[in-house]
């Protein structure tokens, strides 16, 4: 659990960046979800319980600093943490495709859940929520992830 505390500090920094710097990268209302990308990458080094704790904490930090309803982020990130950690427990090594796959999975779960709850009852409807919010966010997350992977030395993230 000591690792969780250490990772939580990194997540807190990502949450602060998300609410300030990342806003300037927004396109058509979508922006990359930095805490999500970092969380998913870190989950691959933790067990299920640590993953859940880190996911819950990420959500709390995100809700407390960004003004989203308290509990929404912790719900979304806890589910992401559980699905990603349990779904990838047999993986011996992480490669480029797998890394992108887990980011895409995490983005689909989180953006789908968070936007689904927030847009419940809004005029946009299911198709509007999908095409205006969820899909652009997922695409932006995965695209940003590709850039990050291209920028980082392979040896670094392969150790995950």
């Amino acid at each position: 659990m000591r690792r969780v505390g250490l990772y939580a500090v990194a997540i807190a920094a990502a949450v602060l960046l998300q609410s300030t710097v990342v806003e300037f990268l927004s396109m058509a209302g979508a922006r990359p979800n930095l805490p999500l990308l970092l969380l998913v990458a870190l989950l691959l080094r933790l067990d299920v319980y640590e993953s859940l704790a880190l996911g819950f904490l990420t959500g709390l930090l995100s809700d407390l600093t960004a003004g989203t309803p308290l509990g929404l982020g912790s719900l979304g990130y806890s589910l992401v943490a559980f699905v990603i950690r349990v779904g990838t427990r047999d993986w011996v090594q992480v490669n480029y495709q797998r890394m992108l796959l887990v980011w895409a999975m995490g983005a689909v779960i989180f953006e789908g859940l968070a936007n689904g709850i927030l847009l419940l009852g809004a005029e946009v409807g299911l198709a509007g929520a999908l095409f205006r919010h969820i899909i652009p966010c997922v695409l932006y997350d995965v695209g940003f992830g590709m850039l990050v992977l291209a920028a980082l030395p392979q040896a670094w993230w392969r150790r995950l």
């Binding site: 299920v48 319980y49 859940l52 996911g55 819950f56 959500g59 309803p69 308290l70 509990g71 929404l72 912790s74 719900l75 806890s78 589910l79 559980f82 699905v83 349990v86 779904g87 427990r89």
Partner: peptide, 26 residues
Amino acid sequence: MRASLREWAALGVCVFASLGLLAGNE
């Protein structure tokens, strides 16, 4: 997804805690 009962229970705790927070926002 192959998860043990304890792992599902841990997820349940997180989900219920989150829903509790969501309900008490005001």
